[in-house]
Write a protein that binds this DNA or RNA. Structure first.
Lengths: 241, 241
DNA sequence: CAGTGGTCTAGACCACTTA
DNA sequence: AAGTGGTCTAGACCACTGT
């Protein structure tokens, strides 16, 4: 009996989509650059413009490329807007979104513990870069954030560049050529400890929102594991369904 | 000066989409029923099949209709699957999704407080139906849930039907003709009180995840305001970005 | 088999950007 | 004016569902 999951039929536009993805993933078309025009690509692959458009539509839907009428199609980058709308879901109670300012507390290389190794799909004890930051919204400390990335993928990130930018995903893309395309977040409620008391100014035991995020590239490989603890008197996590 | 937000140009397929939406919202095409075929509709409106398909594609994207190759296009209903995947984000730590069993604790008519009135976009003091339930996952109490709906929109719901189904959105649609199409959820961390101690079996002060959900119909009108408190030792809230 | 949605084509024309 | 993406058309053929 045939237990294949892949259908016998593979629509042409899906095949085209995968080829285009490949040219982006391989770095041939770098983030921020224009890809060839629809008509050029349709000729290159010997398909109709309509079919090629359908492949591109799908890539637009996946946030892989962005189209600009009259100009062309660019490979998506991690500008501040994207970080804000795709990945940052903390808002003030009045609903206003704004990207937080970050202050780095810890930046070191150490060995991955079991949880981190599982999240990053590496072996326990492998080297990771660990960064701890406090993130402020409108001048008020709102988040205490710990994140780890594999040292193998992000070499020397523990000391270079000297100052870390606010939106790390831009750095990952520009310096290490690794683009975060998607992520899963798991939310828990936890009690504040000493670290949160010190950096967020809350009493120990105060309930905090804890967010575990695994950020992945287009192929689904884990790039970063991040744990954020958020004070929810002033802010909350917003999700639209 | 013209300060209109609506663009001067209105693509045909968007106009068609709105007309189709209207026929669904008005009840002419009820949830669960098949709408006319693509070719029939394209003839009726005097547009090409391609244009009509584009309108339908958009409705599929908005979860308003569902297409079945070889059969036809049906107006979306609230089956258990939809409740599970679009609206229910609580999962076990191992990642398994399952719909919880509900036990009703309170079912009454009372006046809306300020928070509820604001969420439902009604006046404070207007009559609402209030329901409190405990929801169990795999036999373990996981959620304590309070929800309110306007008595005006949901007449007699405080005593009819005698037993409330597990997935309320199906009831809203079938009995009251009101379809939940989208929602916003805001998440907070709070400390457990006596009610949570009694019904969830947690110590007072235990951090809990609190979820505020406003459920809306296709036109964006608020239908239900729901507050759930969730124990996060066994479960968490999962969001894919 | 007829009817449905799904794919693919070829071409016309429109709106937007840049030079 | 030339080039890009966006809309719209008309028609062919494929895949899936029911009878």
């Amino acid at each position: 009996m045939n237990t294949d999951v892949t259908p016998a039929y593979r629509p042409l536009y899906q095949q085209i989509k995968e080829v285009l993805m490949g040219r982006i993933v391989s770095g041939e078309w770098a983030p921020g650059t224009f890809i060839p025009s629809e008509s050029a690509l349709s000729q290159e692959y010997g398909v109709s413009v309509g079919t090629l458009r359908k492949a591109l539509d799908s890539l637009v839907n996946d946030h892989v490329v962005i189209r600009h009428q009259g100009k062309g199609t660019v490979v998506a980058t991690h500008d501040a807007d994207r970080s804000l709308f795709q990945f940052f879901h903390i808002v003030r109670h009045d609903g206003e979104r704004c990207l937080p300012i970050s202050r780095v507390l810890v930046r070191e290389v150490r060995e991955a513990n079991a949880t981190e190794a599982a999240a990053l799909e590496i072996k326990e004890g492998e080297q990771v870069v660990h960064i701890r930051r406090v993130r402020e919204l409108k001048g008020k400390p709102a988040l205490l954030e710990d994140l780890v990335v594999s040292s193998a993928l992000f070499p020397a990130m523990e000391y270079e560049p000297e100052t870390l930018p606010n939106t790390l995903y831009q750095l990952y893309q520009q310096r290490f050529g690794l683009s975060v395309a998607k992520a899963e977040e798991r939310l828990f409620a936890v009690a504040a400890g000493k670290a949160e008391q010190e950096h967020l100014g809350v009493m120990p035991g105060t309930p905090l929102l804890e967010i575990h995020r695994v950020a992945r590239n287009l192929q689904g490989e884990a790039l970063e594991f991040r744990v954020s603890r958020c004070e929810t008197q002033q802010h909350c996590y917003l999700n639209e369904l």
